[in-house]
Design a protein around this nucleic acid. Structure first.
Length: 1156
RNA sequence: AGUCCUGUAGCUCAGUUGGUUAGAGCGCUACACUGAUAAUGUAGAGGUCCGCAGUUCAAAUCUGCGCAGGACUACCA
């Protein structure tokens, strides 16, 4: 037998993947696919660099599958898709990993270990799992150029980053400023948000909280607050960090919040006073029953008191009377000035301090609705203070101690926790108390005695602690370099609107809102392993220089050497202009090497490098340029490959990579960096929990690939949920994909191969004649089923093309799966099996083979982006070539005007109804029936059913199909209002109209059909009902067994004649014999000798005699017709079987392989 | 705390511009089929479409307020 089409015993997807992978390696299929498209228009894809110091997880399979799908699809569509791998090599996780490994902390760097050694360790650690990553990438079939990756620590890469920074610097978009950052005085370092989010950093602590009283200055602005004032007028503000009160510069109110002015007494000094606070906070500070005039009225009614009770207040200090003088909004308070609470020092930098300002962030959840604003110690405070040109006061040093100006507390730590035990003891002694009182407590006491405290109490809340020292952190102003992204905010927003976000909501929502509230990008990191900021400054900060290339650095070094600030050029070995890797590898511009370089300013002063590194996110956002060493090399390549057509990463990159790419591109190129971005969701475990090592629910990607093969895993991930929805990963889902989709496709192919090999089938692309432009569009040999499946295939091509084009792989996967499982396997193949193995060569057989071949070929092409291994195997088995080198299929001219698709839907519906009647009546499918009747409503339906008539008859084993016109009187009909059409016109009457229509009798339905319209009176109104406003369907055919579903009705004649019964028995017999053939291990082509024992039953005898030719032909028996039925079976023994034909009929037969 | 996503059958998911009795696959039960057999067909059980309120003749679908799960960002006087 010709074995041109390989056949397989079983489906083993992991093995297929392994073998195809070897094939790819052997013939460099990836390289060929690029070579093939060498001159084609590019489709630009950017690979986001993963960090190779951690192991890949199952979610990386997801992310990489999505990337691969669109790159492969675009290749098939005729584009050149270069895919350069990349590695993110800098950053805190790497530093932390190295520190853990070496058993050191940040403080040890430069002491126990040199910066050079530390960085060398980082460089080594960062590529540790490269092999594992490359292995995963290959095993999942992600085609990526792993040979020439960009690596962010390479000198060339850093040089490109420096060039970008210089561009920003030259545009005045890079500046030094300061922000309020989490800071650990104990460790002497700023903390990143990452560090702050470590578990256990937020702890519940009890702090002394103070409601401080800020005395209002009386002037024209505040005069209205003094109307009927009772003593002095104060604004109340709450704080849980009293140590920040000396640094107070402003009070912030909510402009839209309501405030009140209250006449009352100071609870500690009992002085009369008038206080201002948010109305919503009154009940937190005042007792309801003490409110005037309510208290007076109450007292009067009890006959206890008369007159003004503010007079006799001092008799009971716990019950303080109060009275609201007036109410107003926060914005009315803005601009009101107050006396500095603790006047130790005056604000720096000019500023117009000590007044009330407005801020959106103010709430009335706790406190007084007035925020004590110390710009140096709170991010919100800083921002609002800047907006209102309030100065700042930073009366705490970097060790966390009060500066000398704060005379009462000078040199003391603001948090007791910063003291050592000995220091605490000494301090306690100094205070002359038994117990140490923190500065917070002593400030509270001071304010109480000065009559400036309204309420002092312990307050429990969560406060962040340094994860290394376990001491509380401070928010502290630290020097930083910033990118002035806010200067280009409008442009960033504008360009974002041109980006195709998948899903859209991430772009408009999460990302769009983020851009709307843009802050300048804090670029500084006080670390060691990263790209150094290329800025050199004189000590006074008066002169500075931003370096944009190694060449420029060398020139400046030469000047510095000449000026004598440096001894020699440490980068002497570097040849300017030599772009070889070897040349660049001779220099290292990381710390500490660049730190040793001192340059000279124009005025001759030495300049030292700003010690900060840059945020690693800038590294990855710079990859469009730095991966090409642009602009020093590859200018043309960059130009062609910017911006990207497509990128994809997890949704967690929205404010990470997606943002940094966008920001750098907007600022330096005035362009988007990518046209489409797919942000995929998380991979959760099967119950929807996040995967983590701690919970032990993390899935090992390699084990999963070993078990199921990459194709099944990829197909499962893509078909199960849209990429941006979170995926609940369940291995059972992969099994299902294997069972349903891949097995159906595999079985279909194997079926094809079996018979194609027997017949020596060869595919000729001319056979189906659907060449574009040809008028003779289809071969007349094609049956209606062929046309139908080819039509469906056409629709599938269009659907997949649209879906892939719109970055909707899930839609494509589901469509392909439905086609393969339902249309191709369960319908087309099942109904056409006989054509493949029955009869001799001829056009009908050719049509069947060509149609099936075409379907398999196209399915391989359409599924290639998602299941690259299996599809390649399938395509190679069919055509001998790789599917990944194929061109996306053209849409064939439709072979049957598209009508077959709806005709087939009718056929499937009718078939299903007949089978359900058979079931109801207890008549098995193998028992032929004479006639069935289907009523139709119009000529289109009649024509369509006619086209699929034979197919229906053979599928349900009935001999005749009568199509009945709906107008024939035998039918009863049912009527149904079309809500959509009618609702629009009827409006409120809809319900009553529906009731009326549903109540129509046969005469009324006939009237409407005949006249085309009729008048109805509903709720006293006359309305017109049109034929189109209702659906009329046949309901019943009297006298027959009937079933219906929606508009479809089928009636089946269930009369069984002797002839039909005999035919049924003959069929049963054939079926039993076929089973025996198989059980006996005969090949499908083996001829047999068949003898049936005549047991005297007339039913059997008649059936065999009448249908002898049929039985022999079906079972490939060579026994002469008149010798089949015998009174005694041949004595060969082994071939004798007893079979049961139905409940009452059994017989014996002998079946042996025939010699010829 | 803010922003965004998700919530439909036991499970995984569809559900067009609002329209009649809300669907599919898996799983479950029963029956059938046997030249696809680890397949297939038919029938059945299984739903407060997360909740409440509103708009509308009509809401799974639109609006508002909540609840639950998740992500990101921020972190509070």
């Amino acid at each position: 037998m010709d074995r041109r089409f390989p056949q397989y015993d079983e489906l083993d997807l992991p093995k297929v993947a392994e073998e195809v992978l070897k094939q790819w390696e052997a013939e460099d299929t990836f390289g060929q696919s690029l070579e093939l498209r060498k001159n084609a228009p590019p489709f630009v894809f950017y690979e986001g660099p993963p960090s190779a110091n951690g192991l890949p997880g199952i979610h990386h399979v997801m992310a990489r599958t999505i990337k691969d799908i669109f790159c492969r699809y675009q290749t098939q569509k005729g584009h050149r898709v270069d895919r350069k791998a990349g590695w993110d090599t800098h950053g805190l996780p790497i530093e932390l990993g190295v520190e853990k490994e070496l058993g050191i902390t940040k403080e040890d760097i430069g002491k126990k270990i040199s910066i050079a050694d530390y960085n060398a360790a980082c460089k080594k650690a960062v590529m540790r799992y490269t092999d594992v990553w490359n292995d995963l990438t290959e095993r999942i079939g992600f085609w990526l150029d792993l040979e020439h990756p960009y690596v962010t620590y390479r000198t060339k890469y850093i040089e490109s980053v420096w060039h970008l920074l210089k561009q920003l610097y030259d545009q005045n978009l890079l500046y030094k400023g300061y922000t309020i950052q989490p800071y650990s005085p104990a460790a002497g370092t700023g903390l990143s948000s990452h560090e702050l989010n470590q578990p256990g950093t937020y702890k519940p602590v009890k702090d002394t909280s103070v409601v401080a009283m800020f005395k209002v200055k009386r002037d024209e602005n505040s005069e209205w607050l003094f109307k009927d004032a009772f003593g002095d007028v104060f604004i109340l503000a709450w704080t849980t960090t009293p140590w920040t009160l000396p640094s107070n510069c402003a009070l912030t109110v909510g402009p839209k919040l309501e405030y009140v002015r209250v006449k009352t007494f100071n609870p500690y000094t009992h002085e009369p006073q008038t206080v201002v606070l948010a109305k919503a906070r009154l009940k937190a500070y005042f007792r309801e029953e003490m409110q005037e005039p309510m208290r007076t009225i109450l007292a009067k009614s009890l006959g206890v008191h008369e007159g003004d009770h503010f007079d006799d207040f001092k008799k009971d200090v716990r019950l303080i009377p109060w009275q609201i003088l007036d109410e107003f909004y926060g914005h009315q308070l803005e601009g009101v000035r107050y006396e500095q609470l603790l006047p130790y020092a005056q604000p720096e930098g000019g500023g117009d301090a000590f007044k009330v300002i407005g801020g959106d962030f103010v709430t009335t959840e706790d406190g007084t609705g007035v925020v004590h604003t110390a710009p140096s110690f709170g991010a919100d405070d800083m921002r609002v203070a800047r907006q209102h040109n309030i100065g700042t006061l930073t009366l705490v040093d970097l060790q966390g101690r009060f500066k000398p100006e704060v005379t009462d507390f000078a040199g003391e730590y603001v948090k007791a926790e910063y003291h050592t035990a000995e220091e605490l003891a000494a301090e306690t002694k100094k205070q002359g108390r038994d117990k140490y009182l923190s500065v917070d407590e002593r400030i509270a006491i001071k304010l109480k005695t000065e009559g400036r405290a309204f309420k002092v109490e312990k307050y429990e809340h969560n406060y962040p602690h340094c994860w290394r020292t376990d001491k509380p952190i401070l928010y502290y102003p630290l020097d930083s370099w910033f990118v002035r992204v806010t200067a280009k905010k409008d442009r960033l927003i504008e360009l974002n609107k041109t980006i195709n976000w998948k899903p859209e909501s991430t772009g408009t929502g999460r990302f769009g809102n983020w851009l709307e509230n843009l802050q300048d990008w804090n670029l500084s990191r006080s670390r060691y392993w990263g790209i150094p900021l290329p800025i050199w400054r004189t000590e006074d900060g008066g002169e500075e220089l931003c370096i944009g290339s190694v060449k420029q650095l060398k020139e400046e070094i030469t000047r510095a050497v000449k000026a004598g600030v440096m001894k020699d050029d440490p980068y002497a070995s570097f040849q300017v202009g030599d772009m070889s890797d070897a040349n660049y590898d001779t220099v290292d511009i990381h710390r500490p090497y660049v730190d040793n370089i001192v340059l000279v300013s124009p005025s001759g002063k030495p300049m030292k490098r700003e010690t900060d590194l840059i945020d690693v996110w800038f590294d990855s956002g710079a990859m469009p340029y730095a991966q090409w060493h642009y602009p020093f090399e590859n200018k043309a390549a960059f130009k062609e490959k910017f911006p990207a057509a497509f990128i994809a990463e997890g949704v967690d990159q929205t404010r990470g990579w997606f943002y940094t790419l966008h920001a750098i591109a907007t600022l330096t190129q005035d362009s988007v960096a990518y046209k489409t971005v797919v942000s995929n969701g998380l991979v959760l475990d099967k119950v929807g929990q996040k995967m983590s090592k701690r919970l032990g629910n993390a899935v090992d990607p390699f084990k999963t690939l070993d078990q199921f093969g990459a194709d099944a895993v990829r197909w499962y991930m893509i078909s199960n949920a849209s990429p941006w929805d979170n995926l609940k990963f369940d291995a059972e889902g992969i099994t299902e994909v294997q069972r349903k989709f891949f097995r159906a496709l595999f079985n279909t192919y194997n079926f094809f191969a079996l018979y194609a090999n027997i017949d020596g089938f060869e595919y000729s692309s001319d056979f189906l004649r659907w060449k574009p432009g040809s008028t003779d569009r289809s071969n007349p040999a094609l049956t209606e089923l062929d046309r139908w499946v080819l039509d469906s295939l056409n629709l599938l091509i269009i659907e997949c093309e649209t879906a892939y084009g719109q970055y909707e792989p899930t839609v494509a996967a589901r469509a392909i799966q439905d086609f393969v499982v339902e249309d191709l396997s369960n319908w087309y193949v099942r109904l056409n099996r006989r054509r493949f193995w029955k009869g001799e060569q001829g056009d009908d057989k050719q049509a069947a083979f060509h149609t099936l071949y075409r379907c398999l070929e196209i399915v391989a092409m359409l599924s290639a982006p998602i299941a690259p291994f299996f599809s390649d195997r399938l395509y190679r088995d069919l055509t001998g070539k790789s599917v990944h080198l194929s061109d996306w299929p053209l849409i064939a001219a439709t072979v049957s005007e598209g009508e077959m698709v709806s005709a087939m839907r009718l056929a499937q519906g009718i078939t299903s109804l007949v089978l359900s009647i058979r079931k109801k009546e207890g008549i098995r499918v193998r028992q032929p029936l004479q006639r069935m009747t289907v009523p139709v409503l119009d000529d289109i339906e009649r024509r369509q059913i006619t086209r699929v008539r034979d197919l229906i008859l053979s599928e349900v084993n009935v001999k005749e199909l009568v199509i009945l016109d709906a107008s024939e009187s035998k039918l009863t009909k049912k009527i149904k209002p079309d809500f959509k059409k009618l609702g629009a016109r009827m409006g409120k009457l809809m319900k009553s109209v529906a009731v009326a229509v549903n109540g129509f009798d046969q005469a009324q339905i006939a009237e409407l059909e005949a006249k085309g319209s009729m008048k109805l009176t509903v709720e006293g109104q006359e309305v017109e009902l049109l034929r189109d406003d209702v659906e009329i369907a046949a309901e019943n055919v009297p006298g027959l067994s009937v079933a219906s579903d929606g508009a479809l009705t089928v009636a089946l004649d269930i009369t069984l004649t002797d002839a039909l019964l005999q035919e049924g028995i003959a069929r049963e017999l054939v079926s039993r014999i076929q089973t025996l053939r198989k059980e006996s291990g005969f090949e499908v082509t083996d001829r047999v000798q068949l003898h049936i024992h005549d047991n005297g039953d007339p039913r059997l005898r008649q059936a065999v005699r009448s249908h002898a030719a049929y039985i022999l032909a079906e079972t490939l028996a060579v026994t002469p017709e008149d010798q089949m039925l015998v009174l005694a079976l041949p004595a060969e023994g082994a071939g004798i079987h007893e079979v049961e034909l139905d409940d009452t009929l059994r017989c014996a037969l002998s079946l042996v392989r025939s010699a010829n």
